[in-house]
Computed example of a mutant assay.
Amino acid sequence: MKKNPVNEQERRLQIMDAFIVHVVEKGFHKASMADVAKTAELSVGQIYRYFAHKEDIIRAVVERKTEEYLQMMEQFLDKKDWLTRIFEPENESEFRTQRILNMEIKAEANRSPILAKIQLEADQRLTEHAIHLVRRKYDLDNEEDIKARIQFLVALTDGLLHRRDFFAAPYNASSHRVFNHMLNELFPD
């Protein structure tokens, strides 16, 4: 029986998914194209038909993740049960994958000017969208003020994300109280 042909977009997603598996498992530098090819059930040469090098794959992964984050941004900026919704996910393995991938990309962006530019462009898109949503949702108007609030929330979120293994879940009542207070200060109704 002949397999259905896979279109270019499906093939690119297949390669990105295989790349993510190996980056999470081994780190960016140890994720070899041979391993990615094997997981994607392709040859290394086939991968190079879709991506010239690892940085092209990571650009595609960052762009894909940025689109996912843009889609969930409104939910992310909703203060109700924020700590539970964002940091106590039901699917712990998916959350772990996202956390490690995020750390690997940011670490590599600190070493590679090309990846730093990719990450900066993604962050700018996310910030612009967040400013728009905050302006619409909360009683805030000054763009620089909104941007500072968003940057603080992102720094807090990144810190919680990267230190996840050091905190017991679910968070206790004191943690919820402090985070609710902080979010109300950042985004007053």
Rank of each mutant, 00 (worst) to 15 (best):
V23F: 02
V23D: 00
V24W: 00
V24H: 01
E25F: 00
E25R: 07
E25N: 07
K26F: 05
G27Y: 05
G27P: 02
F28H: 06
F28I: 10
H29G: 09
H29E: 13
H29S: 14
H29T: 12
K30N: 14
K30S: 11
K30G: 03
A31F: 04
A31D: 10
A31W: 08
A31S: 09
A31N: 04
S32F: 04
S32I: 10
S32K: 05
S32R: 09
M33P: 02
D35E: 15
D35T: 08
V36P: 11
V36S: 12
V36W: 01
A37K: 06
A37T: 06
A37P: 12
A37Q: 00
A37V: 03
T39Y: 10
T39P: 08
T39Q: 12
T39W: 04
A40E: 05
A40V: 02
E41T: 03
L42H: 02
S43V: 05
S43F: 05
S43N: 09
V44K: 13
V44R: 15
G45K: 03
G45R: 07
G45A: 10
Q46H: 13
Q46N: 14
Q46C: 12
Q46T: 13
I47E: 08
I47L: 14
R49F: 15
R49A: 15
Y50T: 09
Y50M: 07
F51M: 11
F51A: 06
F51N: 04
H53K: 14
H53D: 15
H53S: 15
K54T: 03
K54D: 12
E55I: 01
D56K: 08
D56E: 15
D56H: 14
I57Q: 08
I57W: 03
I58V: 11
A60M: 03
A60H: 02
V61T: 09
V61W: 04
V61I: 15
V62F: 00
E63K: 05
E63C: 02
E63I: 00
R64L: 01
R64A: 03
K65D: 04
K65M: 04
